[in-house]
């Protein structure tokens, strides 16, 4: 006999492996998550493990996204230039929506000053942001592939890193780099969604401005760094951007 937390309840069990446990307690279920990690092979159970056994007929991603067969995004790739306030939130939103692969680049490490608006937590301090975001996404859905590049992006490495993407997001904070990305990505022929104006705590509306058939700019267009950048409006702008990405992917206008 040992004690585990089974689907939220402290439970005494005689089973010793995850497969025995599933078969004995929830035979119609097919996914076993042990201490936050879905296990695909029969695994020895340790005392006081937190185990959740659930039914995901269409697989884990299908159970998480709740989209059914409406939108097969699992074969799509989205590129994110920057893993700060916009990039970390956009990545999280797209992963929850079931976008199968995310390529993300940033050369920075997580610091205290990031925690006011980026999805990272104290456990991520000192990590490269691309490694921290991989960890965050893996904890949400390990079936989503995150490919990180710890590089400062420029005109030369952007085409190399992001060439296979269906859509790209601009998630820099520096306006000069934002303009550079528009120039570089437009030459690659990949649809681009940019962010401009999400600072402060004002009421400026988060809009989508269509610049061409393949370039969009989201945000209030005005508020800038001098107002400070806080979580609510950054997440709002990231949400508008991620939503535009889903529209582009699902309209089939991507390559």
């Amino acid at each position: 006999m040992m004690k585990i937390i089974l689907n939220g309840e402290l439970t005494e069990i005689t089973e010793e492996t995850t497969e025995e446990l599933r078969e004995g307690w929830f035979p119609d279920c097919n996914v076993v998550v042990v201490d936050g990690v879905p296990v695909t092979e029969d695994t020895w159970i340790e005392e006081y493990s937190r185990i959740y056994i659930g039914k995901c007929p269409g697989g884990l991603t299908d159970a998480i996204t709740q989209r059914g067969n409406i939108s097969p995004l699992t074969d799509k790739t989205v590129g994110i230039a920057g893993a700060g306030g916009l990039g970390s939130n956009i990545t999280t939103f797209l992963a929850r929506s079931g976008v199968g692969r995310i390529i993300i680049a940033d050369y920075d490490r997580v610091e205290f000053s990031n925690l006011n608006r980026q999805v990272y937590n104290l456990n991520h301090l000192g990590l490269f942001k691309v490694d921290a975001i991989s960890e965050v996404i893996s904890a949400i859905n390990p079936e989503i592939e995150v490919i990180g590049f710890t590089e400062k992006l420029d005109e030369v490495n952007i085409p190399r890193i992001f060439s296979g993407c269906d859509v790209m997001c601009e998630a820099f904070d520096d306006p000069t780099e934002k303009a550079m990305l528009v120039e570089t990505v437009s030459a690659m022929g990949i649809p681009l969604v940019c962010g401009s104006g999400m600072a402060g705590i004002g009421d400026g509306e988060m809009k989508v401005r269509k610049l061409s058939d393949s370039i969009y700019v989201c945000g209030d267009g005005k508020s800038d760094l001098s107002e400070g950048v806080l979580a609510p409006r950054v997440a709002a702008c990231a949400g508008v951007m991620a939503n535009k990405v889903l529209q582009i992917l699902e309209s089939g206008k991507d390559r």
Binding site: G87, D173, A179, S196, R209, L211, G219, L225
Partner: peptide, 10 residues
């Protein structure tokens, strides 16, 4: 012409 003057923040 379509012109965007980017502001900082992200």
């Amino acid at each position: 012409l379509e012109i965007v003057s980017f502001v900082g923040g992200g």
